[in-house]
Nucleic acid binder design. Structure first.
Lengths: 135, 135
DNA sequence: ATAATAACAATAATCATTACTGTTTTAGTG
DNA sequence: CACTAAAACAGTAATGATTATTGTTATTAT
């Protein structure tokens, strides 16, 4: 589990830190490629997964999307996914508002509930404006 | 959009109806194969998606799982995913208990929230019993 | 019975992600 | 500072679930 420093990983982490829009591995790749022209997509995936496993970033897999998204913000919060442009957006709603949800779900259930996964779907502001202009 | 009858689709639907455990396309395939030995996996996928689009079954994609699951029960309800055996289990918790969650999430958010996706993760009864026996 | 079209089986293609291979970096030790 | 073991790299091949394509068969309405 010894994690050695690498300039590529530092660049990946620093890029993620600069973004609020939960980039995909592909997006990280094309951006970090500017500083490291022959970085490999596999390297990006490997480092993103390592960083996520170390708890330094978060990896979000939404059922409605086929691509994973990565987030520098590891504090628990909820997301919104636009079914129109597939954007992933942070919600202002506090995580603590639903902290009791696991206990509620446990009632009448035999297994051990450890966590919940919750996100919201709809149409983002940008797509709403765009579509109303077309109608 | 005209949907013609097919014995294969009827068999797929009838198999799903007989199960409460949200089978995967692969499981549907191997089971329907008994009555239709040369049915194709592509046929199973196509029909499952058609049935889901027609609202006759539900398709569940969980971010923690890489495989889709299909459900004859289309009434909205929540699920539990075992991180040990990957089983998908219905929860007794009523869907209506969280019907106001979309409105809560909308507060302070610009876009249009149309639905939420919620499921729970942990360890199922079966795996809990199995693991305690090993320790 | 016929003809239009949906569905089929078989197979190839897609796409995100992971695994493999031989080389290069890193970091700890003398 | 050289040396060495382990980790990381670039490049590329493989994986696995799902979707698309193709030529044939089944369904349904006239």
């Amino acid at each position: 589990m010894n994690m050695k420093y690498s300039r590529q990983r530092a660049a990946i982490l620093s890029f993620l830190q600069s973004r609020r829009d939960h980039p995909t591995a592909e997006t990280v790749y094309t951006n970090v490629k500017e500083a490291f022209p022959n970085i490999s997509l596999g390297t990006v995936y490997r480092n993103l997964n390592q960083l996520a496993e170390a708890g330094m970033i978060a990896k979000h897999s939404f059922g409605v999307l086929s691509i994973d998204h990565f987030d520098y913000n590891t504090s628990p919060h909820y997301h919104f996914v636009c079914k129109c442009c597939n954007a992933v957006i942070d919600l202002p709603m506090a995580y603590s508002d639903f902290s009791s949800i696991d206990a509620e779900a446990s009632e009448g259930f035999d297994g051990l509930i450890e966590e919940h996964r919750l996100y919201f779907c709809g149409i983002c502001k940008h797509c709403l404006d765009k579509d109303s202009g077309q109608a």
